[in-house]
């Protein structure tokens, strides 16, 4: 470590340990504990003849199939058209991102299924007002995941291993420096 003293080395070591969790957090949307479960967007109601497939994501999306001869229009709260789906002679489909269906920033700490958000997306179906409605659920890792390893524990092990190796490395560097003539 050229050009660094003890203080910088210690600071770098501490920063290293903290930074080692950054990619982990990044891999899960900034939520380190998120590997213990996942969010699920569930549709409870849609206009008759409309098939709605929720698309999971940081911001949810929808893939919709509309029966032949019908048209579904989705607008933002400001009236901007997000999707206009329909065709006279065939089943039509389309998709859009839906900002009104959001995942909470932090998952619940408890380990059971829970509704964490309710949502409603106004639509126009064949010129009549309607809505697609549903919920966001938190789904903890199920019993089928009995082989799963608690994320926090894994991170602790990994962080500990990383810190140990870093500390041993720093100690060796310091020892070599002291031993150097």
């Amino acid at each position: 470590m050229p050009g660094t003293g003890r203080g910088i080395a210690a600071a770098a070591g501490a920063l290293a340990i903290s930074m080692s969790t950054v990619p982990v957090a990044a891999a899960h949307g900034g939520s380190v504990g998120a590997t213990d479960g996942s969010y699920r967007v569930v549709v409870h109601h849609a206009p008759r003849g409309v098939v709605v497939h929720p698309l999971q994501g940081r911001v949810a999306g929808f893939f919709v199939e509309v029966a032949a001869g019908h048209r579904l229009v989705v607008r933002t709260a400001e009236g901007v058209v997000l999707a206009s789906i329909g065709a006279a002679d065939t089943v039509a489909s389309g998709s859009w991102l839906e900002e009104r269906v959001r995942m909470p920033g932090q998952p619940p700490v408890h380990g059971h299924l829970a509704v964490v958000n309710r949502w409603r997306v106004p639509v126009t179906y064949d010129a009549a007002p309607g809505a697609i409605r549903g919920v966001v659920e938190w789904v903890p890792s199920g019993p089928h995941d009995d082989r799963s390893i608690p994320t926090g524990f894994m991170l602790g092990v990994g962080g500990g291993a990383s810190a140990t190796v870093a500390a041993v490395g720093l100690a060796r560097v310091r020892r070599r420096r002291r031993a150097a003539p």
């Binding site: 990619p23 990044a26 899960h28 949307g29 698309l55 999971q56 994501g57 940081r58 999306g61 991102l97």
Partner: peptide
């Protein structure tokens, strides 16, 4: 899907 910064804002559409 680990990118960027843990996922794109529009990643829901990657499901299709």
């Amino acid at each position: 899907a680990f990118n960027p910064m843990g996922g794109a804002y529009d990643q829901a559409l990657w499901n299709l």
